[in-house]
Design a protein around this nucleic acid. Structure first.
Length: 384
DNA sequence: TACCCGTGGCC
DNA sequence: TGGCCAAGGGT
């Protein structure tokens, strides 16, 4: 089935285009760590880390992770906090938990091997259509499509698709081309070639059509519509949350708490904190307002003598945190017990123990600000 | 279906 | 500076 707005490419020139694409790939492919192996486990780990994450960011995490967990069995046997620590800073932490759980399922059900049927692998937590297709086409040479953002962009432009790429009819038309190419030129090579083209030539805000093996038939290039394709839906404004973080310290140790197992930054550690939404277009609260809020919120936890130490703005994809760091000079003995009731867990940790606690980035930066106020003075940390 | 889920880099 | 976005999946 061909998407209504797409211009069909004749079968003959379709295969010529595919031949040019894989020839281009053989010549221009980047040397990446996960291209040195056909081990499905290593390819799987790379695909999960690369979800919504840049190659340069992933590479050091990839090496550290595989050194620590070189096999499915090693990962399955790991402590979940160790897995999360190796993921610290990479974001989307649910990926780590899903990967760990999926490894355990592979060991339980298939003795740590990958099931012969891709549909069984697809059912594992954290494995979607893309990841299943990528692992099984690249590692096992199965002719199954793997459509990621790169692939969607390349085909949206090449075929001039004016509809959202997630529509089933559009998807089917793209998958048909990919399968045809995979039969002719090899599944692994085709999967990686299309992604590589999207990553290095047919990029979102830059397109080097002079270097593109698909330029001859490209609909977007013909109409100079590269920047308009693929069509994307508008994103809503991100809500701003004001966050008050509490620094309680004594004897060189700081009180840390653990976030719930579900939701934002699941299972990660941070300082005790409260948050509230800021009215749209309202100004950032003053120090006096924040102190009043802090006395109200943290007074119940037995904390007093509050002062503002610094502020940090942290932008997620879908929301913004404006975090103010408050230091408490006094707290009652039952403060920790109150906090343990409010949070999953609480612990006193000296700076050399902080690496044991997977910390969300913004709290890493706030703790660094407290530890090294001079060094942080003109960094981004305390600008708001 | 639309929203939730992180981080860092780019223009 | 602010918006956008990068090899998605879950609900």
């Amino acid at each position: 089935m061909t998407a209504p707005s797409a211009t069909p490419v004749p079968t003959g020139s379709m295969n010529e285009a595919g031949a040019r694409l894989v020839a281009w790939y053989d010549r221009h492919r980047r040397a990446l760590p996960w291209r040195d192996t056909s081990d499905p486990y290593r390819i799987w780990v790379s695909e999960v880390m690369l979800q919504q994450t840049r190659v340069e960011t992933v590479i050091p995490y990839y090496h550290a992770f595989l050194e620590r967990f070189p096999t499915v069995h090693a990962l399955a046997a790991a402590d979940s906090d160790d897995v999360l620590r190796l993921w610290q800073g990479l974001g989307y932490y649910r990926r780590a938990r899903h990967l760990h759980e999926a490894a355990q399922q592979l060991v339980r059900q298939w003795d740590g091997r990958f099931p012969a049927d891709i549909r069984a692998f697809r059912r594992l937590p954290g494995v979607g259509d893309y990841t299943a297709g990528a692992v099984y086409s690249i590692a096992f040479g199965e002719p199954v499509p793997a459509i990621d953002g790169n692939v969607a962009r390349v085909f949206a432009r090449w075929l001039g698709i004016e509809e959202p790429m997630d529509k089933p009819a559009v998807r089917k038309s793209v998958e048909a081309v990919i399968r045809q190419w995979q039969q002719a030129f090899g599944p692994s090579r085709v999967t990686q070639a299309v992604m590589e083209l999207g990553a290095t030539v047919c990029m979102p805000r830059l397109w080097r059509c002079d270097d593109c093996p698909l330029a001859a038939e490209c609909e977007a290039r013909r109409g100079q519509r590269q920047g308009d394709l693929p069509v994307r839906r508008a994103r809503g404004a991100r809500p701003v949350m004001d966050v008050l973080a509490l620094l309680v310290h004594g004897g060189g140790r700081v009180l840390l708490v653990r976030r719930p197992a579900e939701g934002l930054l699941a299972d990660m550690w941070q300082l005790p904190a409260v948050e509230r939404p800021r009215a749209e277009s309202a100004p950032s609260p003053t120090d006096d307002e924040l102190l009043a809020w802090g006395r109200e919120a943290f007074g119940a936890w037995g904390c007093d003598g509050l002062r503002v130490l610094g502020r940090a703005r942290h932008e997620f994809t879908h929301r913004v945190w404006d975090v103010t760091l408050l230091e408490a000079s006094q707290w009652s003995p039952q403060a920790v017990r109150e906090l343990e009731r409010t949070w999953v867990a609480a612990a006193w940790a000296a700076p050399d123990e902080w690496p044991r606690y997977p910390l969300a980035r913004v709290y890493e930066r706030l703790l660094h600000l407290w530890l090294h106020p001079a060094k942080s003075a003109d960094s981004q940390v305390n600008r708001v």
